[in-house]
Design a protein around this nucleic acid. Structure first.
Lengths: 102, 102
DNA sequence: CAGCTATATAACTACAAGAGCATATTAATG
DNA sequence: CATTAATATGCTCTTGTAGTTATATAGCTG
């Protein structure tokens, strides 16, 4: 099954999420933006659906895809303990720059 | 080439990073912890090396692997604009709970 | 209801991933 | 210098991924 982590591994899927961040989109529009075939996009969207990262709103033949960012929290949570590391190093850099002006 | 995103797609690699977060480890220890063959672990470590997520310290035949978390910043940065979404929804939930006590 | 539009699914291709086993490499040690 | 220890690399197998084209499905519209 697709997890948030595996979904993010593909650049096209990240791009789709980025596009949905501003507003809902129909499949054809996404295909244009990505420069991908419509079926190609539909497959990515299926994976995004299965991972719970997008929702679909039916409107005649059109399918409006919208962002559902909650599953990304899993990634954010996993990342949390690592943030301390690079902020520590940035702190160290700051201290160094303070102690060694110019 | 392996990016931080593709590295994180595999649970074993995430587990390796989690183990390295506390301290350096040699390959054999990682293999034990993951319940994976030594060559299997070495291959994951190679990918982690190529993505710049770990460093190696040679000590006779032993290789001490250490965490190098900087490339994770890319993931964190990508995630940043999404954080607003779920904190917004949490805020909405908070407001709801405040306005509807019990 | 014929034809058009929008999307999904199927079938196929090419290639990469993850795992295992066997083997090569490198360093220490008797 | 033969042996042992620790790790890396190669080969093979199976499975999954990302993309394509062709086709099916569903809903308008004249």
């Amino acid at each position: 099954m697709a997890t948030a982590f595996t979904v993010l591994a593909d650049p096209h899927r990240r791009q789709i999420l980025d596009l949905l961040r501003t507003r809902e989109r129909v499949v054809g529009e996404l295909a244009d933006q990505l420069g991908l075939s419509q079926p190609g996009v539909s497959k990515h969207l299926r994976m995004l659906r299965e991972a719970g990262l997008v929702t679909v709103r039916h409107d005649a033949q059109r399918r409006w895809y919208g962002l559902c960012p909650e599953p990304l929290a899993e990634v954010d949570d996993w990342l949390a303990p690592y943030r301390a590391f690079w902020s520590d190093r940035l702190d160290a850099l700051e201290r160094y720059l303070e102690e060694n002006p110019q």
